[in-house]
Write a protein that binds this DNA or RNA. Structure first.
Lengths: 357, 357
DNA sequence: CGCGACCGTGGAAGCGGTTCCATTGACTCT
DNA sequence: AGAGTCAATGGAACCGCTTCCACGGTCGCG
C-alpha cells in the first residue's frame, strides 16, 4: 500500500497525493476529494520512515534520562508525555545508567534521523556533545542541568538547600546533619552538591557548627542512605534534625530512625527534597520541586521550536521551589507520640492535587 | 556524511561499505580495514531512517501502555527497558488514556515502519486490531491481557482474588468487603472484575455472606476509593476486612479507615493487589504480581522472535502470584495499637530487593 | 594450458515518500 | 485575437541505505 497505489486508484500522480497529504493549497477541491476517497478506500497510511528520509526529520522526540524509573524521572516524563499528547511527535526513551550509555546515546542523536529534538534530564552532557548537537541543528533542552548556549529548565538547588536548612533552624534546631549523594558520581549529577552548598552556607550564616561526620554521602538508594544515617544517629552528639538531599534518601533516614528507636519528629526531624509521590503518603516534609511542570515546559519549548512557533532561546527557565511542611518535622526536643501523627498529612496545594492521581 | 562519502574516502563502492557495516563475509580483510578506517576518520554513522526504509524494519519496539505513570505500568516498563538494554532496539512509548487513543495507536502500528514489534499492556485490544497486526507480520505480545492466537504474559487474577480472600478468611474474618475498579471502564480492563470473581467464589465456598453494599466500585485513584470505602465503613454491620483490587485503592481504604478513626489492623484489615513500590513502605499486605518480570519476559519473547531465535508461540506465559503479608492485616477484633506498627515492614523477599533500588 | 567456479567488488535498482520543474489549459488583458 | 499569467498537475530527481546482478580476476582442475 504505497502512495503510487493511491495515485493510481485516484487517477492522479503521486505528487498530487503527496500534496493532499500535506495540505498543500495547490490542489483543486475535486481532485482533493478524489484522492481522499482513494486514501479512505485503500486505508492508506504514509510510511513514516519514507517520510522521514525524504523530509529529513522523523517526527520523534528523544528523551535522554538517567534511571527513568526513579520517581522524579517518572514525574518529569509524565509532563513530557502530557505536552506531546495531541502533537504529531512520538516519544523515544533513552535510558542512561552509565557514562558509556550516555555518550552512546548522545552520539547517535546528533542528527535529525533518530529524533527531531532532544530533552536531556539531570545530565550535564559533555560540552563537546552539546556542541555537536547544536551545530547539527538538533534543538535541545536540558532539564535539571545547565550548559551555556542551550535552553534549560532548572531550579535553584542551592536555594533549595538554604530553604530546608533555614526552615530547620527556624524551628529551633542547631544540630543539623546532611545526607546527600556521593560527589564523584559517574554521571556528574550536581544537584546534590548544590543542595549541600546551600546547607553549608546557611549553617555558617547562622553561626551553627557542622562537625566532622555531620555531612555524609551515599548512593541514591534508600538502603545506602539508611546505613549512613544510622552512623550519624549513633553519635554521642546526635543531630536533632537531618536534611537529606532527596526524598528517597530521606526515607532511608526515617528507616534508620525507626531502627534506632527514635521518634520522628519527637527525637528527630527529617526534611527531604523533590516531593515525589511517596512523600505525601509518608508525611515527609520536603522541598518540593515542580517535576511534572519541568517536563512539560521542556517539551513545550521544544515543540515551539520544532513547529516554528519560536526560536530556540538559550537561557534558564527557572522553576520555583517550595517547602512542603508535613509531619516529619517539629521543634527539637518536643516529644510527640509517633502514633498521633498517623500517615499522610501535609498542608500544600500539592497534596490536594496528588489525591486525584 | 553519507555512505557515498565513506565509499569515496575509502576508494570503494557504496555496496562494499554497506557490506562492511552489515558484517557480510564477502569482503576481503584489507578492504574491510580500509572501509573501517574511513568510517572512523569521517565519524560516519548510518542513517537509521534510510536503513529502515531499505530493510523494511526500524529497529524499534513499541510499547502501548495505558496510564504509563501508574506504578504498575512503570514497574513493567522497567522490565522492558532492562530486556532491551544491550539490544539494538529503541523503545517508543505509546501512552493510552482513552479508547480513541488506543485505536489510533494500534492502527498506525500495523506495519513494521513504526515499530518492529509490539508490547501491549493491560489492554484487551479489539480483535480486529490484533488480527490486522498479526496478518501484517508484526510480532506482538500482550501483557496482562488475553487474546487468542497471540503470545501473552499473564497472571491468574481470579486466583489472586481467591488468595487474598482465603487469607482473610483464614485469619478469622467473616465480614469481608471488596472494593474494585468500575466494571464498565472504557478501556475494558478486566483484571478488577476477575479479582472480584475470585473474591465472590471464595466467599461463597466458605459460606460467608456478601451483603448488598459490601462490594463497591470506584475509579482507579486513591481519592475515589477512599470515598467508596468511607461508605462501607460507615455501615452498622461494618466489615472487619477489606480486599481492594489494587494497592492504589487499598491506600485509599487506609485513608478512609484513618479518617473514620479505625485502627488498622486492629479494627480493620486491608489487603491490596499488585505490590507496587509504595506498598512496602506503607506496610500494606497485598497480592504481589511480578510486574517487572512480566515486562522483561514480554520483551524477551519479542526479541527472540525479531532476532530469529524463536518462532512466535501463541499461548499464555503465566506468572505466579504471591501473598505478601505485612502489617495491615490481623485476626479480627484484636486491637493492636496503631503506633507499634510503625512504617514499612513485611516479610517477603521482595522487600529486600526493593531496598536496593 | 584452457575452462569453469568462485571470490570480491562496483553499480544500479528499489524502498516510499517529498519537492522541484515543466507542461497544459483556462483565463485575463490589451 | 494573441500574448502572458497562473493554477493544477504529472513526473523526475532525490533522501541514504540494502541488495541484487554483472563483471573481472584467481584459482583449481582436467
Amino acid at each position: 500500500m504505497t502512495i503510487a497505489d493511491v495515485a493510481a486508484h485516484a487517477g492522479v500522480g503521486a505528487g498530487t497525493v503527496s500534496r493532499v497529504l500535506n495540505n498543500s493549497p495547490r490542489v483543486s477541491p475535486t481532485t482533493r476529494a478524489r484522492v481522499l476517497a482513494a486514501i479512505e478506500a485503500l486505508d492508506y497510511r504514509p510510511n513514516p520512515l519514507a517520510q522521514g528520509l525524504s523530509r529529513g526529520r522523523c517526527q520523534t522526540l528523544g528523551v535522554v534520562v538517567p534511571f527513568f524509573t526513579h520517581a522524579s524521572a517518572i514525574e518529569r516524563l509524565r509532563g513530557v508525555v502530557a505536552a506531546l499528547d495531541g502533537s504529531r511527535y512520538d516519544l523515544v526513551l533513552f535510558n542512561v545508567e552509565s557514562p558509556v550509555h550516555r555518550d552512546e546515546h548522545l552520539a547517535t542523536l546528533t542528527r535529525r534521523d533518530r529524533a527531531d529534538g532532544l530533552i536531556v534530564m539531570s545530565l550535564p552532557p559533555p560540552p563537546e556533545s552539546i556542541e555537536r548537537i547544536v551545530r547539527a541543528g538538533v534543538p535541545i533542552v536540558l532539564v535539571d542541568a545547565r550548559a551555556p548556549g542551550v535552553p534549560t529548565v532548572v531550579t535553584d538547588d542551592v536555594e533549595g538547600g538554604r530553604l530546608a536548612t533555614r526552615y530547620l533552624i527556624d524551628l529551633g534546631h542547631e544540630r543539623i546533619a546532611f545526607i546527600g549523594d556521593e560527589h564523584d558520581n559517574p554521571l556528574g549529577f550536581i544537584a546534590g552538591r548544590e543542595r549541600e552548598q546551600g546547607y553549608r552556607e546557611t549553617m555558617a550564616a547562622a553561626g551553627l557548627p557542622v562537625p566532622d561526620g555531620y555531612v555524609d554521602h551515599a548512593p541514591h538508594v534508600r538502603g545506602a542512605a539508611r546505613e549512613v544515617a544510622a552512623r550519624v544517629l549513633d553519635r554521642p552528639d546526635r543531630p536533632t534534625a537531618v536534611f537529606a538531599s532527596s526524598d528517597t534518601q530521606a526515607l532511608g533516614v526515617l528507616e534508620a530512625a525507626r531502627a534506632a528507636g527514635l521518634a520522628v519528629p519527637g527525637d528527630l526531624s527529617v526534611v527531604g527534597f523533590d516531593d515525589i509521590e511517596v512523600s505525601g503518603y509518608a508525611g515527609l516534609t520536603t522541598v518540593r520541586q515542580p517535576l511534572y511542570e519541568s517536563g512539560r515546559l521542556a517539551a513545550r519549548l521544544l515543540l515551539d521550536v520544532l513547529e516554528g512557533r519560536a526560536e530556540p532561546e538559550p537561557g534558564e527557565h527557572r522553576l520555583e521551589l517550595e517547602l512542603v511542611e508535613r509531619t516529619t518535622t517539629a521543634p527539637p526536643g518536643r516529644r510527640d507520640t509517633f502514633a498521633s501523627r498517623g500517615r499522610g498529612g501535609g498542608h500544600s496545594v500539592r497534596d490536594r492535587v496528588s489525591e486525584e492521581r
